[in-house]
């Protein structure tokens, strides 16, 4: 994760508490260490729940999903492989997948509503995140987002925070069929390269 990367010289130190060694906490949790899991929860729950809440929007349902995700983390901590990605990416990937699956399942039930969220084009970053972290990382992410083309940014936000498929995003943004996935990928690659993660 970016906040585990070496900070470029001349950049201020992140204004947050020292980052816990999430990988070590996950390994201890896999061995049944409940205290390590509690520490992992404390280090990541605001971030994980904030994402789930952002995607799902309904606070009660979001807490249910957050609970499911943490139980999944407890059960499957031994399956985490640091060689394949950072601990935080693993947690957020689990949380995002579950949140998206939840909104899609709910949507499948009420398919009749064809108005299709046309008014949600513009994603407001702070709408569900009163406690939005003003951390160095958040600032860097915002700065990186600002570098994307408007279409890349909107496609990425609709996919990630909206939980929409690339085909739905294409319709919402009036893009030719099959191009939203390219915008999403291009945008993510630019984000990755700008914030220096995954290297």
């Amino acid at each position: 994760m970016s906040h585990l990367q070496p900070v470029p010289s001349g950049t201020p130190v992140p204004d947050q508490a020292p980052v816990a060694d999430l990988g070590a906490l996950l390994r201890q949790s896999a061995r049944g260490d409940q205290q390590a899991f509690a520490a992992l929860y404390d280090a990541t729950s605001a971030r994980l729940h904030g994402l789930v809440l952002r995607v799902i929007r309904d606070p009660a349902q979001a807490e249910e999903v957050t609970q499911e995700v943490f139980l999944q983390v407890w059960r499957t901590a031994a399956r985490f492989d640091e060689a394949k990605g950072s601990p935080l990416a693993w947690l957020m990937t689990l949380a995002h997948r579950r949140a998206v699956d939840r909104v899609r399942a709910a949507e499948a039930v009420s398919r009749q509503d064809t108005s299709y969220h046309q008014n949600n084009h513009v994603v407001d970053h702070d709408s569900t995140a009163e406690a939005a972290e003003k951390s160095m990382e958040a600032r860097r992410v915002r700065a990186a987002l600002a570098e994307l083309t408007p279409v890349q940014r909107e496609a990425l936000e609709l996919a990630y925070f909206g939980g929409y498929t690339h085909a739905e995003v294409a319709v919402m943004l009036d893009l030719p069929v099959g191009t939203a996935k390219t915008r999403i990928r291009d945008g993510l690659i630019r984000m990755r390269d700008a914030i220096g993660v995954g290297q």
Binding site: A46, G50, L51, H125, A129, A131, A132, V141, F161
Partner: peptide, 8 residues
């Protein structure tokens, strides 16, 4: 997710 933190 650094932009959307919210404590449960």
């Amino acid at each position: 997710s650094s932009m959307t933190t919210a404590a449960p």
